[in-house]
Write a protein that binds this DNA or RNA. Sequence first.
DNA 1: TAATATGGTCATATATAAATGACATTGGAG
DNA 2: CTCCAATGTCATTTATATATGACCATATTA
Lengths: 66, 66
Amino acid sequence: MNHVKTYRKAKKMSQYELAQSIGVARQTINLIENDKYNPSLALCLKLAHVLDTDLNALFWEEKNEN
Amino acid sequence: MNHVKTYRKAKKMSQYELAQSIGVARQTINLIENDKYNPSLALCLKLAHVLDTDLNALFWEEKNEN
DNA sequence: TAATATGGTCATATATAAATGACATTGGAG
DNA sequence: CTCCAATGTCATTTATATATGACCATATTA
């Protein structure tokens, strides 16, 4: 689970607006939010910038297996 | 510029060893280190875990445009 | 009722990440 | 110098990210 949807909602953007603002298709945003696949690093970086956050906030999950 | 090579050297691993440890080809590591392309998020996450670091440390560049 | 905005999903096509095998170069160790 | 490990790079193939167009469901508003 990533946190794209949470950050998008915080900016009050629709999937379409977010897609437009980073130059991808709306379906791409939808699939990413629903973990249907595996975005490229370049796309992750664009998302982080548009959503005023960073890679870790959007995509990093700490492992607590010690 | 990403910091994969720096973190790999810190772990004293070769490109081949790093590639083996995350299940990709050596060339893939080489291309990523030299910014020849655009790895997937899943691959970035594996790299971060194997190199005992996180996404921001490897791939995030702060923008200092204020 | 209809109309619109948003989100989820499908099928098809294209661009590119990644695999594979090969070869050249570099640097260190003998 | 030779030998070898590590790296850089090329060409080809395969898997998949992404684009595009479409359709459906839901909620809201006229």
